[in-house]
């Protein structure tokens, strides 16, 4: 078993897992903290990759500046969703779908075609991580993730960050305490999609290209990572930094599991079906738990009545 794991290149799989885990942190911010299911990420992930690749290949920019630009592009995508949601009064989920739809055109504009390569041989001095040097990529991704988690942890400990958490937790209470919930929702979407685009930029470097479809299903993978992390860390689930880290661990585990089942003979074509079903089941568990509890309580009441 161990041989099998090593043979498919565990470091590389884990590095990819961390990148998707970073994306999952973006999903965590909207889905768990703001209580919004934001589908923008499917588009903004690719936007991040596209902006990074084009900045490096077409404009010869520094990789860090390119990453920053990818982050900003993601922020703008989040801003668009936020404005649709709060200023146009469109339900959050539909706002995300609209932006994601629009981003397909925007991403094509940025990339100019469906797929642009970031040749590692040519840009070896530029790119930070690459699938050709998996161990190196794994270490760098881990450091990168740690920095992002640290920054987000600090942010959510500030007065502003705290008011953002309150907005997601109880909007009525937030407004009663003078918090501008609309602005906070926009801000949360902006930060979330910035992080998502940043991880898109990392993946484009790692795989050596940006693709118009690279973000397809990102929301589902993000949710899978968040849920796996949640199940594993349920007991020590208090600190926000731990929760963010659990999303990263969830991302890694998701990728390790996927790689294993592919090794064991599952067709890659069936992967998305499998992921969707797993995520649906895990999302359903709290609901089933509740309805089982409810039916038990009802039965308890009935038997009490009979006894009387």
């Amino acid at each position: 078993m161990l041989n099998m794991i090593m043979s498919f290149g565990l470091p590389g799989v884990m590095a990819q897992g961390i990148i998707w885990g970073l994306m999952a942190i973006g999903v965590y911010i909207t889905f768990k903290i703001l209580d919004i299911a934001d589908l923008t990420v499917d588009g903004s992930f690719a936007t991040g990759g596209a902006v990074l690749v084009m900045s490096v290949t077409q404009y010869g920019m520094n990789i860090w500046i390119s990453l920053l630009l990818a982050f900003i592009a993601g922020c703008l995508a989040g801003l668009m969703t936020g404005i649709f949601h709060t200023k146009f009064g469109i339900p959050a989920i539909l706002s995300g779908i609209l932006t994601q739809f629009a981003l397909y055109s925007i991403n094509l504009r940025i990339l100019t075609c469906a797929n642009v390569a970031l040749n590692v041989r040519k840009y070896s001095d530029v790119v930070l991580i690459s699938s050709f040097y998996t161990t190196d990529a794994l270490i760098k991704c881990a450091i990168f993730a740690a920095i992002i988690i640290g920054l987000l942890y600090l942010f959510f400990g500030t007065q502003l960050g705290q008011s953002l958490r309150a907005t997601g937790c109880n909007p009525n209470m937030s407004r009663a305490n003078g918090i501008n919930t609309e602005r906070n929702k926009i801000l949360g979407l902006v930060i979330s999609n910035g992080v998502v685009a940043l991880s898109g930029g990392l993946l484009a470097q790692y795989q050596g290209f940006a693709d118009i479809n690279m973000g397809r299903g990102a929301i589902v993978i993000g949710l899978a990572a968040v849920i796996i992390g949640e199940v594993l860390f349920a007991k020590i689930y208090r600190n926000l930094a731990v929760r963010f880290t659990s999303a990263i661990v969830g991302g890694i585990l998701y990728y390790v599991i996927i790689s294993l089942v592919l090794r064991m003979g599952l067709k890659a074509d069936d992967l998305k079906l499998l992921t969707a079903l797993v995520v649906a089941i895990f999302l359903g568990i709290p609901f089933w738990k509740k309805s089982i509890m409810d039916s038990r309580i009802k039965k308890g009441v009935e038997s009490n009545v009979k006894n009387q």
Binding site: F155, G157, T158, Q159, L160, Q162, S163, A166, M173, S174, N177, G178, I179
Partner: peptide, 13 residues
């Protein structure tokens, strides 16, 4: 949150 009601929520701890 209540103690800061009506005030700006800034970036200080």
């Amino acid at each position: 949150l209540a103690y800061r009601r009506g005030k700006k929520h800034g970036l200080s701890w």
